[in-house]
């Protein structure tokens, strides 16, 4: 063995080849099966993709780096289930590009935060966290009250559709109208929005003002959707604890 290595050290491209070969094994064994086995590719029947407004909110969540302090992954541990809700399933993030599981909880996990607090609470909390939680160390995001930039909404849906997220043609075409309608409950576009994304989605003036579409509308719509895209985790937990 030592003799073999003694000779390998004299051939630079031999070392290059050996390094690539040896380093590739682990990744191939651990990653390749994830694209085929049932546990990681099965999609529940009731799973819906994010609406255009929620997706815009998700982009704001990414832009502001929320993932650096908040996870979206409830582990299968008793205290996490008691604190946050049913543990997360792979299927829940099957269409999430990128996934936002996170790695640190400076603040609490958000995987099940949807509909736990009112819209008004979220708005107040984002503008000034210490107005609702006096000892919070979260930074304030007062600029979220500005209008939502809508240039990319249709392109974002189209790109995700090309990558395999089940947005059909009418969803892509109506992306902008659907984003506007979701934050304006009395508008004409609501019927089409509900038809495309299901009756269960939240249609509200998330920032309290139906007249304008703001970044706050998008981010709160996204936060309120977390954990509500499928009932599968609740059914799974109920089945296991029965």
């Amino acid at each position: 063995m030592l003799k073999l290595h003694y000779n390998l050290e004299k051939i630079s491209m031999g070392l290059v080849g050996a390094i690539i070969a040896v380093a590739s094994v682990g990744g191939i064994v651990e990653i390749a099966p994830l694209f085929t086995i049932e546990q990681t590719v099965e999609i529940p029947d009731d799973l819906r993709p994010h609406t255009p407004l929620e997706l815009a909110g998700r982009e704001i969540y990414i832009r502001e780096g929320c993932y650096a302090c908040h996870s979206q992954m409830v582990r299968s541990l008793a205290d996490e289930i008691d604190r946050y809700g049913p543990y997360s399933l792979a299927a829940e993030s099957a269409w999430d590009r990128p996934m936002l599981w996170g790695s640190k909880r400076t603040g609490p996990d958000l995987a099940r935060v949807g509909e736990k607090y009112s819209d008004a609470w979220h708005v107040a909390h984002l503008i000034d966290p210490r107005s609702v939680i006096p000892v919070s160390i979260m930074p304030a995001y007062p600029w979220l009250t500005r209008p939502l930039e809508t240039d990319l909404i249709e392109g974002n849906l189209a790109t995700l559709a090309r990558l395999g997220v089940p947005y059909d043609e009418t969803m892509v075409e109506n992306a902008l109208a659907d984003a506007r309608a979701q934050a304006r409950p009395d508008s004409d576009g609501v019927d089409g929005l509900l038809e495309r994304y299901g009756e269960d989605i939240a249609v509200r003036a998330f920032d309290g003002d139906p007249s304008s579409l703001t970044e706050m509308d998008a981010l709160v719509a996204y936060l309120q959707s977390l954990g509500t895209l499928t009932d599968a985790p609740y059914e799974m937990l109920a089945e296991e604890t029965r």
Binding site: F35, T40, E92, D96, R97, M99
Partner: peptide, 10 residues
Amino acid sequence: FPVWAGVQDA
């Protein structure tokens, strides 16, 4: 958008 999604992306 990344070509990887969900658990594979993680």
